[in-house]
Design a protein around this nucleic acid. Structure first.
Length: 422
DNA sequence: TCTGGGGTCCTAGGACCC
DNA sequence: TCTGGGGTCCTAGGACCC
């Protein structure tokens, strides 16, 4: 049996954790750039605020309903996540951290699964202060389904175990196809078109039809819903195949120099992440595009691959080649919204084929990067030390107007408690 | 004026080789 | 009038997840 533990409204719950004053107010957290809603408390959901809704479109409504609005504070959420995960790891030797707010636990061979799940819920809420829900079932997909089922129908219990055919069928029948893990808008439309509306309907579809219409991905889902585990628990996260950094600009940009600054800064972040996981990239992809929500604007989307002569994770080298790429795809006369970079063909740092002629440079570069990382790390990854080309971000940087403090990671921002007189 | 970012996996089709 | 077939690698695009 497999359990999935999922933090309820995670980002919103994190904001509440350090700000008791918003315990009873509706809370929403916005995406990067304060663009759209990415997390909502129950009260916010009850107001009809949708996931992904554009913030500017509901501004008045948020104010009228006294909604507490926050910019995303990933440093804070990451550190709360670490606490949740370390508590969870006490409950099973085999665990997969699936996302910032979810983990699968292997419950095979364990007894009293309901009691165990209930204990997890109680403990996380007491020790970390984040509400969670737990679903337990024979497969990951059914565990996710059990989790959603309890959230919808038994929220106050927050724990559900599918340990009998009767309970499984009841949960399948109560779950619309679009709520199945792995079914998005396209597959949901397809299933409805063929008269399958609940997970139970889908679980009774024929293998051949599903294979043909939904590929092997659909087939795997189908088997999982029938209780045959087909998606394994992944304890070690597999090495990343690529890593990308991109951001929408705080405002539209037309000037190539501004875009160069932004791209250099994203490349620097990417380089830092590469060094942290001790990888080098052999290929980088640069892309640049306009805002396709603005129908009044001419649209432009281009990307380009730049093969690096030697795999590298030196910010200096990476920026150099990123700029060459940008030179080839930049075109004046457009309102640009976003630029980004993907580092691909990653190889372990210690397996890089070195170019015979540049070893001295490589070593010097590596020392420079190490010094730079040390300093920046000390200042909570704020990229205090930058290359000149990165500029200061005044033209393109994100809007983050409602950022909460880094309560858990920056000493000056640790929560202060006042005790005694008012 | 304002609509996120970072990933994964799968498939189809083209290029190329023998 | 005829115009192979199979394997591999690459890329673009689609679908999904949180």
């Amino acid at each position: 049996m497999i359990a999935i533990v999922d933090c309820n409204n995670f980002y919103a719950s994190c904001e509440r954790l350090f700000n008791p004053r918003i315990k009873t107010r509706p809370v929403v957290v916005l995406s990067n750039n304060d663009g759209c809603v990415v997390a909502r408390s129950e009260e916010a959901k009850a107001l009809g605020i949708k996931m992904g809704e554009a913030a500017f479109a509901i501004e008045d409504m948020l104010e009228k309903n006294n909604v507490a609005v926050y910019s995303s504070n990933y440093t804070l959420y990451g550190s709360v996540s670490n606490r949740v995960m370390s508590t969870l790891s006490r409950y099973s030797p085999n665990m997969e951290i699936y996302s910032i707010d979810e983990a699968f636990l292997d419950f095979s061979g364990m007894k009293d699964l309901f009691g165990l799940a209930a204990d997890i819920k109680r403990t996380i809420e007491q020790e970390v202060g984040i509400p969670v829900s737990v679903g337990v079932a024979p497969s990951k997909t059914l565990a996710k389904l059990a989790n959603r089922f309890t959230k919808k129908h038994f929220r106050d219990i927050g724990v559900h175990v599918l340990d009998s055919p009767e309970k499984t069928i009841a949960a399948l029948a109560a779950t619309p196809v679009e709520d199945i893990w792995g079914v998005g808008a396209q597959y949901a439309a397809l299933l409805h078109k063929h008269n399958m509306h609940t997970a139970l309907d889908f679980s009774r579809a024929s293998d051949d039809w599903v294979r043909k219409e939904m590929s092997v991905v659909g087939l795997r889902m189908l088997h999982e819903l029938r209780g045959i585990p087909s998606i394994e628990l992944q304890e070690e996260p597999p090495p990343k195949k690529g890593m990308g950094v991109s951001r929408s600009f705080g405002k539209l940009l037309t000037d190539k120099n501004d875009i160069r600054e932004a791209l250099a800064s994203y490349m620097a972040i990417c380089g830092e992440r590469l060094r942290r996981q001790k990888s080098c990239a052999k290929l980088i992809t640069i892309f640049l595009h306009t805002n396709n929500f603005r129908t009044q604007d001419k649209q432009y989307y281009r990307s380009i691959n730049v093969q690096l002569p030697t795999a590298t994770n030196s910010t200096k080298e990476l920026i150099h080649y990123a700029m060459l790429g940008l030179d080839r795809i930049f075109k004046p006369g457009f309102n640009f919204k976003k630029v980004g970079v993907l580092a691909q063909d990653l190889v372990p740092e210690d397996q890089v084929q070195q170019n015979l002629f540049s070893e001295a440079d490589l070593e010097r570069d590596a020392r420079l990067m190490k010094a730079l990382d040390n300093i920046n790390q000390h200042f909570s990854n704020k990229q205090l030390v930058r290359f000149a080309i990165q500029g200061n971000g005044t033209k393109w940087k994100l809007r983050q107007e409602k950022l909460s403090a880094c309560f858990t990671t920056r000493v000056p921002e640790i929560l202060k408690a006042k005790v005694g007189h008012v």
